[in-house]
Write a protein that binds this DNA or RNA. Sequence first.
RNA 1: GCGGGAGUAGCUCAGUUGGUUAGAGCACCUGGUUGUGGUCCAGGGGGUCGCGGGUUCGAAUCCCGUCUCUCGCCCCA
Length: 414
Amino acid sequence: MAPVKPVRGTHDILPKDIGRFRHVEETAREIARRYGYGEIATPIFEFTEVFARTLGDTSDVVTKEMYSFDDRGGESLTLRPEGTAGVARAFISNGLIQNLPLRFFYRGPMFRYERPQKGRQRQFHQVGVELLGIADPLGDAEIICQGADLLDALGLSDKVTLHLNSLGDTESRATYRQRLIAYLDGHRDRLSEDSLQRLDHNPLRVLDSKDERDRAIVAAAPILTDSLNDESRRFFDAVRRGLDTAGIPYVIDPRLVRGLDYYCHTAFEFVTDALGAQGTVLAGGRYDGLIKQMGGQPTPGTGWAAGIERLAMLSEGAPPEPRPIAIVAAGEAPQSAAFALTHRLRRAGFAIDIAYTGNMGRRMSRANKVGARATVIIGEDELARGAAGVRDMESGVQEEVSLTSLETFLSRFR
RNA sequence: GCGGGAGUAGCUCAGUUGGUUAGAGCACCUGGUUGUGGUCCAGGGGGUCGCGGGUUCGAAUCCCGUCUCUCGCCCCA
């Protein structure tokens, strides 16, 4: 018999904790609304190919972190490790190319088989946006502004720094890749083992190695920016001008690269030092080649994703829930009347807490514990008079109110 | 996948060199003579001491394995 506990790297989010979680999500949704991004929900599993083909054969996500399985029909399916591939697939499947440009917002669980840590779970949740059909660099600036607005709305502006880089277009990247490999090849004997691996599979990743020895070598390595061709350079400049115009501060980080293969040009990360090793809180970039690679018409795209748990850990939390009204009955006939009244008030839109056990003291106690703003008290006496006592739980002032006018009277406690 | 730390009640923890039915505070439930909360008093429920194996007359305590959490590497949101 398996022990009764959640699978490693998964979490129950209890009612007392879910407020801040939902707050992040709803804030992101509201910002998305302002930017004209419509919400889209795609399945949490797709054919494995959707991810394998697009994220890149060498990315860690594909090679060792996917939850893949064969279904009963023998199809290889995968729990989505990120959101962009699914949105791109939906774009193609639904023939949405007719409607470009398109702005999407999404939210939901993602799955990666990783070693859990603070801010890193196997099932985690993201909000994200995708802007399809805009090749203009201002599209990149737009989504970065949106990310900055979200972080600002969550009160995180002073806890994060925006890091920005350009990976250039295909040509620029190829040029740089060659230069980098040539340079690193000359230092093979001094590179860490991890970086030797990277050198063969995904050399750009050597750039953000944290190994001391690597860092020294990387410090003197050729810089991506220097390999940008004119067009890539103009593109990058335009993105920067857009951000400058909008007053979004950033630092250029020439060593910032992306783990997934489909990125080009703009790459950015909002980073914090308040979450230990998991510093990236919202990140994204441009992926002009993705849709074509998936089999659709060539369509430019840019977007980002943010970790809800990470944002929730950083933010102060959600605005308080509205307080309920408690109903306390004394005696059997009143209990039945109280039950009916509870139903009536709930249908009228009030949040009602009712207790079924305990003496009056206990029930008042409970009303207090659930944070009731007011308590409606019904006993034999009140019932006989067709009334109830209504007690303001803050002032302690109690007055008798006729049952027929309860809704009106209670509306002041909403 | 690799390395460090931790695991006793829902929570925070105590538990003496291995020795009877494993404790505290908070939380929870009930009562304090027949209808009033945020105090107080009394009582109560709840733990296979993460799990499995070993040593021993005897293990929460020692040994091994394993799981989970946590910090870092890796990776990334």
